[in-house]
Deep mutational scan, measured.
Amino acid sequence: MLEGKVKWFNSEKGFGFIEVEGQDDVFVHFSAIQGEGFKTLEEGQAVSAEIVEGNRGPQAANVTKEA
């Protein structure tokens, strides 16, 4: 698991990027966000996630919002 913060997230398109210190930004799709209801993230929000290899490079999986 790694910790980072949301760089930006487009709720209409359902994707965005997470900033991780010392690494390239990581793509995040709404389907990777854990929880019930409408899955979205806010800019600057702290999150933790796993990194997996997607079709277009590294992407976030099992994204959870930090308190």
Rank of each mutant, 00 (worst) to 15 (best):
K7W: 05
K13A: 08
E42A: 12
R56T: 07
K39M: 07
D24N: 12
S48G: 07
N62G: 06
F17D: 00
Q45T: 09
V6E: 00
E3S: 14
K5I: 13
L41C: 06
I18C: 03
T64N: 11
I33C: 08
A67C: 12
T64A: 09
L2A: 09
I33Y: 03
Q45V: 09
E36G: 10
S11F: 10
V63A: 02
A49V: 15
I51C: 08
G14C: 07
F27S: 01
Q59E: 11
F9A: 00
V28M: 05
E43I: 15
Q23F: 14
K5F: 11
K7F: 05
N10E: 00
E53F: 15
N55V: 14
H29W: 08
L2D: 03
V20Y: 06
E43Q: 15
A60L: 04
L2M: 11
E42S: 13
E12N: 12
K13E: 02
A32L: 03
E43H: 13
S11Y: 11
A60G: 05
V26E: 00
S31P: 01
E12C: 15
E12F: 13
L2Y: 11
L2S: 08
N55C: 15
G44Q: 04
S31E: 05
G35S: 09
E12W: 13
F27E: 01
E36H: 12
V6H: 01
E19T: 13
E19K: 12
F17H: 01
E21K: 12
M1N: 09
V20L: 10
W8D: 00
V47M: 03
G37P: 05
V47G: 03
T40P: 02
E21V: 12
L41P: 02
V20I: 14
V20P: 01
A49K: 02
D24T: 10
G22F: 07
E42T: 13
F30C: 08
Q23T: 09
N55P: 15
N10I: 06
I18D: 00
G57D: 02
L41T: 00
N55L: 14
V52W: 09
Q59C: 09
E53M: 15
G54L: 07
S11N: 10
N62H: 10
D25G: 05
F17C: 08
P58W: 12
G14E: 00
Q34Y: 09
E53G: 09
A46G: 09
R56C: 13
F38M: 06
E50D: 10
I33S: 03
V47A: 03
D25P: 08
L41E: 02
F30V: 06
M1F: 13
Q45A: 09
E12K: 15
N10K: 07
A32H: 07
G16A: 03
N10W: 09
K39F: 06
W8Y: 08
K5Y: 11
E21C: 14
K7I: 07
Q23L: 13
H29Q: 03
G16R: 02
S31H: 07
G57R: 08
E42I: 14
V6G: 01
G44Y: 04
E53I: 15
M1I: 13
G57F: 05
T64E: 08
V52I: 11
I51L: 10
V52Q: 08
V63G: 02
A46D: 07
N10H: 09
Q45H: 08
E21P: 13
E21G: 08
G14P: 01
I18H: 00
G44A: 04
V47W: 02
K65Y: 10
Q23C: 12
G22C: 08
A46E: 09
T64P: 03
F9M: 00
F27P: 00
E12V: 14
A49C: 15
F38G: 04
P58C: 09
R56I: 07
E43M: 14
F38T: 05
A46P: 10
E12M: 13
A67Q: 12
G54M: 08
A60N: 03
V20Q: 04
T64C: 10
V6K: 01
A32K: 06
V26M: 06
V20H: 03
K7H: 04
V20N: 03
K13I: 07
D24V: 12
V63P: 02
F30D: 01
A49M: 15
E19L: 12
R56L: 09
S11G: 09
K7S: 04
T64W: 14
N62V: 10
F17V: 08
G54P: 02
E19A: 14
V52G: 05
E21R: 11
V52P: 01
A61P: 02
V52T: 09
N10Q: 05
A61Q: 10
V28D: 03
V20A: 06
A46M: 13
G57T: 03
K13L: 10
G4C: 08
F9I: 00
F30A: 05
A46R: 15
W8S: 00
A32N: 08
I33D: 05
V20F: 15
E42L: 13
L41M: 05
S11C: 14
L41F: 05
S48L: 14
T40E: 06
S11H: 13
A60D: 02
G4K: 01
I18W: 02
I18K: 01
K39D: 03
K65D: 04
G14A: 01
P58E: 04
F9H: 00
G44M: 04
W8E: 00
W8I: 02
V47H: 03
E36C: 14
E43C: 14
I51F: 06
Q59T: 08
G35V: 09
K65Q: 08
A32D: 10
K7E: 00
F30Q: 03
V47N: 01
E43D: 09
T40G: 05
A60F: 02
A67V: 12
S11I: 10
F9R: 00
K5M: 08
A46F: 14
R56G: 08
Q45N: 07
F17Y: 07
T64Q: 13
V52F: 10
A49P: 02
A67Y: 13
A60Y: 01
I51Y: 08
E50W: 13
G35W: 09
Q59N: 04
G22R: 03
E12R: 14
F38S: 05
K13G: 04
F15S: 01
E66L: 15
S48R: 15
Q45R: 07
A61R: 11
S11Q: 13
A60P: 01
K65A: 10
E50Y: 14
V63Q: 01
V63Y: 00
V52K: 09
S11L: 09
A49I: 15
Q59V: 10
M1K: 15
A60H: 02
E21A: 11
Q59F: 13
I33A: 02
G4P: 01
V28T: 03
W8A: 00
E36L: 11
F27V: 00
I33L: 07
F15T: 00
A32R: 03
G4N: 01
V20E: 02
Q59M: 11
G37W: 07
V6L: 01
N55H: 13
V63L: 08
K39R: 11
Q45C: 09
P58T: 09
K5S: 07
V6W: 04
V63T: 03
K39E: 04
F38P: 08
G16I: 04
E43S: 14
G37V: 05
E3K: 15
P58H: 08
E53P: 12
A32Y: 06
F9K: 00
K65F: 12
